[in-house]
Amino acid sequence: MSEADLKSEPKAENMSEMAENFKKGVLIIAMLLLFVATFQLYFSIEKIIDTWFQYQYASIFKAVYYLFVLVVSLYIIRLYILKR
């Protein structure tokens, strides 16, 4: 192997590592944005229920909504646990 080949290998590894770190950073930012958007959606739906339904029925619809959120959350957690 020539000296030029030896110098280019660490550079290629460094670029590959930088690309991998960049992908991880983008994934973390996307997850944070997803987290914030999920909470905003959750509280917006609560406000919609309060606006669209009369006050005596709002608690019924909120209970159904919370049950739906609970079932979906448990399903996602179950999928995550089964993957491992």
Rank of each mutant, 00 (worst) to 15 (best):
L33G: 15
S16L: 07
I45K: 01
N21P: 04
Q56D: 14
A4R: 06
E9N: 05
V71H: 01
K47S: 15
E3P: 00
L67G: 15
I81N: 01
V71F: 08
E46H: 13
M1W: 07
L33T: 06
Y75I: 01
V26D: 01
L70V: 02
I49F: 00
L82P: 00
K83V: 14
K62N: 10
K11C: 03
D50W: 01
E20D: 14
L82E: 08
P10C: 02
E9C: 04
L6N: 11
A19D: 11
I48C: 11
A30P: 00
A19K: 06
Y66L: 05
V64E: 03
Y75P: 00
Y65S: 01
G25R: 14
A63K: 04
S44H: 09
L79Q: 12
E13D: 07
V71C: 10
A58L: 02
M31E: 13
L27E: 13
F39C: 12
Q56A: 09
K7V: 02
S8W: 05
I48K: 08
S59V: 01
K11N: 06
K24E: 04
Y65M: 01
L33W: 11
Y55N: 06
Y75Q: 07
F35T: 08
A63H: 03
G25L: 14
F43P: 03
R84L: 14
K83M: 15
Q54M: 03
I81W: 02
